[in-house]
Design a protein around this nucleic acid. Structure first.
Lengths: 104, 104
DNA sequence: AAAGTACTTGCCAAGCAGGAAAGTACTGGC
DNA sequence: GCCAGTACTTTCCTGCTTGGCAAGTACTTT
């Protein structure tokens, strides 16, 4: 049992951010390049979405250096993880209502 | 096993249509008033969304009379049902990637 | 005749999203 | 030193979607 209160989150629901957040749930820190490749977003689109998620308090952004090159990484905050779980619960509720069988 | 090919469907993903379609999956024919109450949409918004879903081939719209009053009802077409199932499968794939536990 | 039911359609204004391109701040050859 | 490249960020702009509001349609009810 997860015990998360279902809560539909429009910010997370948008396709690009849904992928982004789900990628982040799996990892600890994920870096810009990885996220860009996985989502197929352009630099600018990804940058903006990350800012949006950061402003919402759903992710932390860390800027570090690997050798002498900058590296931007992101990870979910506890709030972000919680919001994602709550959103998934909300989706499950919607699906449950439909009577569709779920096989995890 | 459902055996449905996962296919993310932008048309179905939008929150209002997602609720709408999930409501329709549960029922056979659902009428306008019921859908409006369940979704909290305005007459015009609902009317437009139903047209959108009909144009996509996801629902059938039936206009009948109950006594002397008109009654508009909708139900999923097989294509709509299939698209919803495929979309849910796509969502499950996304959630599965996140490693979040699913309890149906 | 006026009001109500049951929608539908047109118009509009808001909001979001992404591409292109320029900007920033360095680093790395040549 | 200078030009190109990396790694983003920000701005500008365009397109798409949505919802509200208002008017229209076609009857029925009081």
């Amino acid at each position: 049992m997860t015990g998360v209160e279902p809560r539909f989150d429009d910010l997370i629901h948008a396709p690009t951010r849904l992928s982004l957040v789900s990628l982040l749930t799996a990892a600890e820190w994920a870096d810009f390049k990885f996220l860009r490749e996985q989502t197929g977003l352009s630099d600018s689109a990804l940058s903006k979405q990350l800012t949006t998620l950061e402003d919402a308090g759903y992710i932390d952004i860390r800027k570090s250096f690997v050798g002498k090159r900058p590296r931007t990484s992101a990870r979910l905050t506890p709030a972000g993880r919680q919001a994602f779980a709550a959103h998934v619960a909300a989706l499950q509720q919607i699906v449950a209502r439909s009577g569709l069988e779920v096989t995890p």
